[in-house]
């Protein structure tokens, strides 16, 4: 009986230890599907910034051309 108790006690302890080893991650966030909303928002921002950069790039090119024609 003593041996049985000791064994089961150690087993339970090891269960706790195992549970603590698991690193907490945002699995909930992904399974609920809402992470896609964030990804969507960020992709929109990134595409927006890149489009804005392209527009600035074109404007600068245009001014450079005009300056070249003047000279």
């Amino acid at each position: 009986m003593k041996k049985f108790l000791a064994t089961s006690f150690l087993l339970i302890i090891s269960c706790f230890l195992f549970a603590q080893e698991k690193v907490e991650m945002a699995d909930e966030l992904r399974s609920s599907g809402k992470i896609y909303v964030v990804v969507g928002v960020l992709v929109t921002i990134m595409v927006g910034i890149i489009l804005f950069l392209i527009m600035i790039d074109r404007k600068v090119s245009d001014i450079e051309k005009k300056l070249k024609n003047k000279a």
């Binding site: 698991k22 992470i35 964030v38 990804v39 990134m46």
Partner: peptide, 27 residues
Amino acid sequence: KILCALFLVYVIVAGFLSDVPHLPILH
């Protein structure tokens, strides 16, 4: 510049959705 745009959009999508190692402190 095209490469830059493609990479960054890919990084945002894959960066959030890909699997990462489960490490303490960092999560």
